[in-house]
Nucleic acid binder design. Sequence first.
DNA 1: CATAACTCGTTAGCACTGCTAAGCATTCCC
DNA 2: GGGAATGCTTAGCAGTGCTAACGAGTTATG
Lengths: 153, 153
Amino acid sequence: MVSDMPTTEAVVRTDAGLAAELRVGVMRLRRRLALERHPENDLSLGQMAVLGLLLRRGEMTIGQLARLERVQPPSMTRTVSCLEELGHVVRGPHETDGRVVVVALTERGREVVLADRSRRDAWLAVQLAHLTPDERAALRRAAPILDRLSQAD
Amino acid sequence: MVSDMPTTEAVVRTDAGLAAELRVGVMRLRRRLALERHPENDLSLGQMAVLGLLLRRGEMTIGQLARLERVQPPSMTRTVSCLEELGHVVRGPHETDGRVVVVALTERGREVVLADRSRRDAWLAVQLAHLTPDERAALRRAAPILDRLSQAD
DNA sequence: CATAACTCGTTAGCACTGCTAAGCATTCCC
DNA sequence: GGGAATGCTTAGCAGTGCTAACGAGTTATG
């Protein structure tokens, strides 16, 4: 049994402790990041994520986007519809399969995601610059692991 | 200008790239974690966080909880009210300041948070066990940094 | 070849959780 | 004592996740 008031340092040595610590840190940071929206021309975190995927990987189907973002299809439909209304993406038919919808970045969407990303990440980049090189290295190391964890069953 | 399809590896070398990568990883993992709720006796992530704080630090005021969780006071009022209805915390008066409300964990709340936490972190702990010791070390290193970042201005 | 079963995306509706604005009680300061 | 500041609450709104149920298209089976 754990003692009365375990410190962060002590608790984080076990796997369960690391899990709890990681959960709290991820939760808080994501909440903090969500606040960092610019009054004009801003996109939600979910919209940003989708545009980022399309920028990086090219055309994708709704289902692919949903699986990668760990979201149910209806949620992705809504996000894509919103992006389409904004003119940042277009829906198109699949070459061979009439059921699937292919989502592609428009030129305007490409411009917007690049501009918005640099503004949006500005806050976080500034915070990162305040860290020691060691700490930045730790995050550089951890970032892909977090993403991989999110894709686990 | 960035080339057509930057890989994760390439993009993560710059601070802005790290920011973007970290943002996406944090977002996805938090979404994944939110899914990991047990059908019975479960608490939301926000409720868990509050109970965890009370367990670790003892009695706290609404305002303190709100600041630590990076949430506005009305949001914390709602969370605490919900926990109070469940019988997991009690509101009490402050010793000297009649404005503030002191929140304390009940014995039942203490039991619940310990039980629920171990169940809730089970999934994440299992995933952590699948990582290499190196990767776990990286996360152990990164976890407190994530939390500190969330508290930055 | 017809039909049943499955897959993909959508629509409809709900729940949770964050916010701001506004109000009340209390405390602090001149 | 009276006005400003602080702490919490209430009321109402927005964003974003979910499930259930449905239509269209594809695949498998009899």
